[in-house]
Design a protein around this nucleic acid. Structure first.
Lengths: 218, 218, 218, 218
DNA sequence: TATGAATGAGTATTCATTCAT
DNA sequence: AATGAATGAATACTCATTCAT
């Protein structure tokens, strides 16, 4: 997207338009890394990601300055997809709670668990693109929850932070385990959790409702 | 000692009563490792565990042949504590669903998230003590769920594997953050999940109910 | 390269022609290890071998999966050279006992003492290439000894195992000393030993003649 | 029990006469170490030597300041035994060459191979007791060789250094190999070497005859 | 540009030696 | 005096990153 501006040609120097195969490699690497992160966590050898992407190891470094930058790119890519799912659910689903439910399951399928490195303390939290993506996602999810709450379908003592953290936790890969083992459980757990979210509340919750911002500072 | 040994002749090797300080060290190491596993997963440097336990690195190896043996010991220790909590809840809590609820929150406090390495594929699944501990725990939790189900308080489409995995996932701390940060959420999430478990079921679950055994083979 | 690969589609993996400098490093490492083994045995730190070869330590692992594989490669390399010497002596030396004598001195110069790790119990005896090399060497040496025996120049109560072991032992340098110190003795000792091998036998030998195979199993 | 030793009183201070069991332990340790050195070289873990001797590891340090001192003690013990064998052979064997032959085989049986650490460069060569032992041994062997030479039974171009080095080399354990494998060969090799030593010489030797002193400086 | 090779900084584990009982 | 436990200094091996082709 930063290169999009240059697309009209004109300037002969500067960002010399990426070659088609280079772009393809970049996407392959991100995709391979996303699967790797979800299945095994973010600590896999880069050589393995390279092998899985079908490129040489050094090629990763041509596209991403270091491991941190690769992780950031993967996270951004996943947030994009998840936000898009939230927007689609809001646009296409009439029933407000069903929209929320659809989003939750869709986020799991989009590998929202690959966001987990975002929560590590080695992760650079102050990153412009990332903040924008975070705000977009928070805005989308708050919209979904607000509508459900307004319709009396969502209990009133939960906020967006509660949902996002639980969603991440329930879909996180077990470290060192291939995903398939856990996958069969994920949608069951999400469904149970959603049932607990419905109004009327069946119990009183300890603590207090949290937003995404609470997460970053706490 | 020398002469004492000689008197019994060539005895194969008597277990020579562990020294008090050695026992203390052993427990400290297990405790440090448990916290480490819960917070960061089972792949942390052993040197860090040693530092946290306040012992030299090699001391770990005096007590545990290698990393695998340490992990096994931690897992066993946690399973013991969690089973004990299940049994206490069953014995002391009159209301069947309240017994289950109490167990779930207590298991979180006992760091049940430290069981996650058990699910890794490098973990030796065929271990006598471990199998015994697993059976005891499963039996205990099935007892709690059975009573709640019989009393019509627990939805009928969930089994022990569903509960244990969700419980582990929801109580795992975010990597790189000290526990307290997440702790504020954990009991909220568990409460929401428990609300979703109550009868009557508010939705239909995908997949099918799973036992602990399913986890090992899947 | 990328596109080249794509053109052949999903080829299993073509052996990609080793680079010249990589080959050079490989040979340097083997040579350094050979000297090390001869002087100090096969238990020296790999870092030391790396330093002596003038490469980084990790480079050893790029070429050899682990210490065992390095040892095997060194052994194979030495066996090759020694076999070549045996064949040259047989081809070029008219007098049968002189051919044997020439081989013995040449083998010492080829560092046959580096074969000693082959006799350790941690050494993988069942290795295809190794068995082939062993058979070739045994065949060559038996040829030399057979001719000398047939000519009545070699005593009849010795076999190839006797010669090879003594040859290895007598040429091993004293640990901790640079080769030259012992070298002045080696050829004297070999000469004395060869004199003892000549027919007619001057005494009766204890035990019985041994082949190379006896070495492996005993 | 431990005070029993002090019972004879007299001097309350100063070298309080070693206790019987302490002496026994000391001998056991030396014997265990000698076997270990011969079988596996001098680099075995001290814990293993302790176990083989049937004592605790720290007991070794009560008797020997460090590994070097233990090695020295073993070497001294072996030199003693070998010198005694040389003297017995000289005294009891009428035929001069037979005396030499008997000594050579006896030295092998006394584990003269355990002297090999003496040749390492980490070994303290300037040690009073050791020098005395070395001189005694050299004197004894020179006596045996001198008599055989005077009787015209020993070739005239060899000296004591030639014999001692070859003897050590031929009886040295292969590193990492249990002794039995090589033992069956040792006496055959020695016999062949002795046959080569006999007069008349069957070939001309390269280099020149060497004494034990040449070894230390070369 | 893409690659295979090289490297140094890390981690697991072992071992000689010291300490507390 | 003897022991079992503890420790820090090695050593084998891995991996992120840089270099040469």
């Amino acid at each position: 997207m930063q290169t999009a501006a240059a697309s009209v040609a004109a300037e002969p120097r500067r960002a010399p338009r990426p070659r088609a195969d280079a772009l393809r490699n970049r996407e392959r690497i991100i995709a391979a890394a996303r699967e790797m992160f979800v299945e095994y966590g973010a600590e896999r050898p880069l050589d393995e990601i390279a092998r899985r992407a079908g490129v040489g190891n050094a090629t990763i470094y041509r596209h991403f300055a270091d491991r941190a930058e690769l992780i950031t790119s993967v996270v951004l890519s996943v947030m994009d997809r998840v936000s898009a799912q939230a927007e689609a659910a809001a646009a296409e689903e009439a029933d407000p709670f069903e929209a929320l439910r659809r989003f939750v399951h869709a986020a799991a399928d989009e590998r929202i668990g690959a966001l987990c490195p975002m929560l590590s303390d080695t992760f650079d939290q102050d990153h412009a693109e990332l903040n924008a993506a975070r705000e977009r996602l928070e805005h989308d999810v708050e919209g979904l929850m607000g509508r459900a709450r307004a319709a009396g379908r969502l209990r009133t003592d939960v906020a967006v932070g509660d949902l996002m953290v639980a969603l991440s936790q329930l879909t996180r890969p077990l470290p060192g385990t291939p995903c398939p083992n856990i996958d069969q459980f994920v949608h069951r757990h999400l469904q149970l959790f959603l049932d607990g979210l419905q109004a009327p509340a069946r119990s009183e919750l300890p603590g207090s409702a949290a937003t995404l911002d609470d997460l970053r500072k706490s």
